[in-house]
């Protein structure tokens, strides 16, 4: 359990944040630039003076100095020490940790940086720098890992790789990760728990799947529902995923049968049919029941559905709503045009 209630000032900006979330797991704080995300992380790390409570798994951190908090901070710009090799960077926190459990060899292997150990840090690519920064933080045996926009300096092709890595180290070492980002894709891929931050305050928070179904996230043009499933089989270039009480066809995703995957279904990719459609190319068609109808800020209709795969959102025109006489309680079929796997 992480439980915060703190106030901090950075220049004219005031932060007043209170939230609690279960641990271990990935907690994402999502908000626009300037909302106070970095100030929040800095306050938790003790780098910006703050007042209030920071309780983490029954340890109280607020009264401790930054160097005593045992917080692994993965900075946006990595901040590797330029006078040290990759190995020496990785061992900087490790050498200062009491009773280390995670060791260099294991961390380097998991992060895929075993081949870089004797290099200097200046020649590393953005993705490699982020891996080394993550390794350095993990090896300091932290109580919690703080990540500030960890994908900012990583090129697009490598983003998915780093996201997968963050998820897998979290699971492997049962870490508590507090992650801040202004990128909804990053939050959707990582978060177990989400808090929304606006103008220095937490406006909403909750388990990721539930929060993505609620306003304001459900009213965004890129609104989506998250489905946590498991790989059932790999066949013909696609991956079959067990989701809730049904199976969905997803783009090919590496993973053993039984591996956990998170599917994202965008509201704009879900169309509705009153009768089971015939001869269509859509592979994922699930029976659904309308639970609610809303009008989005952008004028589209948002249809909330209950399906065997879990709750889904569908964004359609208001025209379609009246034509099909859609109403809560109506049973119909949801055609899921595309599923993204993370």
């Amino acid at each position: 359990m992480i439980d915060l209630d703190l106030t901090a000032r950075a220049g004219a900006f005031a932060l007043r944040c209170a939230f609690a979330a279960p641990t271990p797991g990935i907690i994402s704080v999502f908000g626009p630039s300037g909302a106070g995300k970095t100030t929040l992380l800095r306050a938790i790390a003790g780098l910006t003076p703050a007042e209030g409570r920071i309780d983490l798994d029954n340890a109280s951190l607020a009264a401790l100095k930054a160097e005593e908090r045992r917080i692994g901070y993965v900075f946006q710009d990595a901040r590797l020490f330029p006078h040290l090799s990759v190995r020496e960077n990785l061992l900087y926190g490790f050498a200062r940790a009491a009773d280390p459990r995670l060791h260099l060899d294991e961390a380097a292997a998991v992060l895929g940086i075993a081949g870089l150990l004797d290099r200097g840090v200046r020649a590393l690519s953005g993705g490699e720098r982020q891996r080394v920064a993550l390794g350095r933080a993990l090896l300091s045996q932290p109580r919690v890992v703080l990540m500030d926009e960890p994908l900012a300096g990583v090129d697009i092709a490598r983003k998915g790789e780093i996201l997968g890595l963050i998820r897998s180290v979290q699971a492997r070492f049962a870490l508590t990760i507090l992650h801040v980002s202004h990128d909804l894709d990053e939050v959707a891929a990582l978060a177990d728990h989400v808090a929304l931050i606006e103008q220095g305050a937490i406006s909403r928070r909750g388990p990721a799947r539930a929060l993505f179904l609620e306003a304001p996230l459900s009213h965004r043009p890129d609104a989506r529902s998250l489905i946590d499933g498991r790989v059932a089989a790999q066949q013909d270039g696609v991956t079959i995923v067990e989701a809730g009480e049904t199976r969905l066809v997803a783009p090919r995703h590496e993973g053993e049968a039984g591996a956990r995957v998170r599917l994202q279904v965008y509201a704009r990719d879900v169309t509705l049919a009153l009768k089971p459609p015939e001869a269509v190319s859509t592979r994922n068609i699930v029976p659904a029941t309308i639970t609610a109808l809303e009008t989005r800020i952008d004028g589209q209709a948002l249809v909330r559905l209950e399906t065997p795969a879990g709750p889904l959102l569908s964004a359609i025109t208001r025209d379609a709503v009246s034509d099909l006489k859609l109403a809560p309680g109506l049973a119909l079929f949801a055609l899921v045009k595309a599923v993204a796997v993370k």
């Binding site: 930054a66 901070y73 900075f75 020490f81 200062r96 933080a137």
Partner: peptide, 21 residues
């Protein structure tokens, strides 16, 4: 870069330690 000093602090290095390392 002061950011490096902050990174060293979060990694548990105290003042004298940071001066030397």
């Amino acid at each position: 870069d002061e950011g490096l000093d902050e990174a060293a602090r979060t990694l548990g290095a105290k003042a004298l330690d940071r001066a030397l390392s």
